[in-house]
Each structure stands twice: as structure tokens, then as C-alpha cells.
């Protein structure tokens, strides 16, 4: 059953149809299926429901709230026809290659800089590899070269380690800084 209906759902006409998605704060978003399925989680739900999919009654997303889903949808709209991204390693340095972002993507992250952790969580749950990997890379970019104090301040993290604990962690990991 899954394969037949899945084939049916993949048709281009269906991508143009609307689906209603309900976030955990009971907001309804009417989205083109072609955009919504950038999320593998939503795509799987659409495929699983197959013929029985009632496009008007909506797909519930219990783990994402409206304001974040709005931002995620902006990404999906821009990336609806984008090819799957690949995580690659440089064969010489064995470092993970950093993704090169487009002007649009750079602007997107500049706009939502204070929501990077939410975006990473949502993208992880919704299985949107491009958004997930790019957001994590952005977060790493922000952490790079900063002191623990600066990192805490930037992300509003409470300092819950004692001075002794911090000194001990520093002492036993000092080799990392060479």
C-alpha cells in the first residue's frame, strides 16, 4: 500500500496542492505540499497517510511552535527544489568541509541569529538536513575563538559550574589548547 500511494503522492500536481499544518500553539499554516515535504518528517506523514490524507484537517506538529515554524517555512520555500546536501570530508586534512552558503542563506541566519538553537532543534525534529547542518555550522562559527564567559553571555547560559570545577576542567584539558 505504501509504495502505490507514495507514488501517487509524489506527482507534480500534488506538490501544488495545499496542506494544513498545525503547530503546538494551535496555529494553522496552509502550505503547498511541495514546500512542506522539504521536511522529511512531514513528507513521511504525507506518504504514510497516502489516499486517506485529508488535506484540510491538518497535520499536527506537537514539537514545533508557530513562530519557529514560520521561520522554518521560509527556508523550505527557498529550498523546495534544492538538491540533497552532502556532508563531506576533505581527504587531505580529514576535516569536515564547511558548507558554502548563498547570499540568501547568510541573510536568513543574520535575521534569525537569536533563534539558532530553536532552528536547530526544529530542523532536527522535522528532518530538514540543509537547515539542520547549516544552523549547526553557524552555531559553531559563533562559538569559535570565544571564551566560556563570552559564550555564556552570547547564548544567555547560566554559569552553573563552581570555580573549582572550572579550574579542574581547565587543568585536565589544557593539552587541548596546544
Amino acid at each position: 500500500m505504501a509504495t502505490e500511494s507514495a507514488n501517487g503522492v509524489s506527482s507534480p500536481e500534488l506538490n501544488e496542492r495545499d496542506v494544513v499544518i498545525t503547530t503546538n500553539d494551535n496555529r494553522n499554516f496552509t502550505v503547498k505540499i511541495g514546500v512542506a515535504r522539504v521536511s522529511k518528517t512531514i513528507n513521511n506523514m504525507i506518504q504514510d497517510l497516502g489516499e486517506s490524507l485529508d488535506l484540510s484537517s491538518g497535520i499536527p506538529l506537537p514539537n514545533v511552535d508557530g513562530p519557529i515554524f514560520e521561520k522554518v517555512l521560509e527556508w523550505c520555500e527557498e529550498h523546495k527544489n534544492a538538491p540533497e546536501i552532502k556532508v563531506e570530508q576533505d581527504p587531505h586534512t580529514r576535516e569536515r568541509k564547511w558548507f558554502t552558503m548563498t547570499e540568501w542563506e547568510e541573510e536568513y541566519f543574520r535575521k534569525f541569529l537569536s533563534h539558532l538553537w530553536d532552528l536547530a532543534m526544529a530542523a532536527n525534529y522535522l528532518e530538514i538536513p540543509s537547515l539542520y547542518y547549516y544552523t549547526c555550522q553557524k552555531l559553531a562559527e559563533r562559538i569559535k575563538g570565544r571564551t566560556p564567559e563570552q559564550i555564556r553571555e552570547m547564548f544567555g547560559i547560566e554559569d552553573d559550574l563552581t570555580e573549582e570545577e572550572k579550574a579542574e576542567i581547565r587543568r585536565t584539558n589544557v593539552w587541548c589548547t596546544y
Binding site: 536547530a120 559553531a140 569559535k144 554559569d159 572550572k166
Partner: peptide, 27 residues
């Protein structure tokens, strides 16, 4: 401070050891 380990691990894997040493002392 409530982030799933999975996401933090992914972020940390982009960083060098010098930055990881700082991350360990964040919280």
C-alpha cells in the same frame, strides 16, 4: 542548557580542540 546532546555534538564536531576546551567550561 536544555539542548539535546545530539545537537550539541553536531555543533562541537565543527570546532577545534581549543574551542572545545572553552565549551567544557560553559556550563
Amino acid at each position: 542548557t536544555r539542548l539535546p546532546h545530539e545537537i550539541l555534538k553536531r555543533v562541537f564536531s565543527y570546532l577545534y580542540l581549543r574551542d572545545l576546551a572553552a565549551c567544557m567550561r560553559v556550563c
